[in-house]
Amino acid sequence: MQSSVEVKGPLQLAPQKARRFKLTHARKRAALGYLFLSPFLILFIVFTVIPVVQSVYLSFTYYNMLQPARWVGLSNYSVLFLEDDIFLTSLKNTFIFAVIAGPLSYCLSFLLAWVINTLKAKMIFSLAFYVPSITSGIALSIVWLYIFSGDRYGLLNNALLNWGMISEPILWNTDPNTIMPVIIIVSLWMSMGTGFLVFLAGLQNVSPELYEAGAIDGISSRFQELWFITLPLMKPQLLFGAVNAIVGAFGVFDIAVAISGMPSPNYAGHTIIAHLFDYAFIRFELGYASAIAVFLFVVTFGLGRIVMRLLSSKDQ
């Protein structure tokens, strides 16, 4: 009776060696990828993750840079929401600004990019709209302060007086009723920045053949092309622009301070970032300032997640 004996020759060992070789090769490629990624990861952890974690910890302490941090629990947050009336005013001002200026800057950036993309001299117009965003907000505020000057020699007051629309100059940057509209107008003019360029780049990447195919399928107007072809293909750019608009709207500070001062009259132009700056770099109450920063981080992160859920596409 013959017993069957398995013979393991080169033909049987070859698949195992091939799998082992592929696994080793994949590990080497992954290690190489992490090696190239390590500079960014190190900088991101050191300058982003660690400060955020430290800020969360300091928000539960009393810390003034001269004494060791002393644990106070939720005391900073209770004072922030229950006793700090100026913070509630800054919260109201920031949300008013974000609700008005955020969507307006987002829509204007896209509409202007859409219109400029159809022009022949698109590079010139793109540069004209982008330059204000890279110029210092304080420097540009000087120009706007001349326009909104509260005397009769201010550009806007002079024009309104000559046209007979007002009988006396309007104190644009000192009247609590007009401070926030002025800040919104200046911010909108300076909002054509990174989001505007991203929208313009996304529009230029849409293939003209898709519009030709849409015309064959019955699309007859530019607005139908925009709704059925352009917007679905630009979800990544729209998502980036939305997150950028949220961060910019809740981070308004330098323009508000340059227009209305710090503190502004009746705190009409006081924002969350201005409140944080006050406690962090003027009063040096870093524990309380960290509580403000954590609250702002939670708000912007939550709104960002909502926008990502609305605009993210699994197909792209």
Rank of each mutant, 00 (worst) to 15 (best):
R20W: 12
R20N: 10
R20H: 09
F21K: 11
F21N: 10
F21V: 09
K22M: 13
L23W: 10
R27F: 13
K28S: 08
K28C: 10
R29N: 11
R29I: 10
L32P: 10
Y34N: 01
L37N: 04
L37I: 02
P39K: 00
F40G: 01
L43N: 05
F44N: 02
F44Q: 04
I45A: 11
I45W: 00
F47A: 04
T48E: 13
V49N: 08
V52Y: 13
V52F: 13
V52E: 07
V52G: 06
Y57C: 07
Y57P: 06
Y57H: 11
F60K: 05
T61A: 06
Y63S: 05
Y63T: 03
N64G: 05
M65T: 15
L66V: 06
L66C: 08
Q67H: 12
Q67P: 10
Q67E: 15
P68K: 06
P68T: 05
P68G: 07
A69I: 03
R70Y: 14
W71M: 10
L74N: 08
L74W: 12
S75F: 07
N76C: 05
Y77Q: 03
Y77W: 07
F81H: 03
L82H: 07
E83S: 13
D84V: 01
I86W: 06
F87D: 00
L88V: 06
T89V: 09
T89M: 13
T89P: 00
K92G: 12
F95T: 08
I96W: 03
F97T: 04
A98P: 01
A98D: 04
A101Q: 04
G102E: 12
G102Q: 09
G102V: 10
P103A: 08
L104P: 02
L104H: 09
Y106I: 05
C107T: 13
S109T: 15
F110M: 07
L111Y: 15
L112G: 02
A113C: 07
V115S: 06
N117V: 02
L119K: 09
L119M: 13
L119E: 06
K120F: 15
A121H: 15
K122E: 09
I124C: 08
I124R: 02
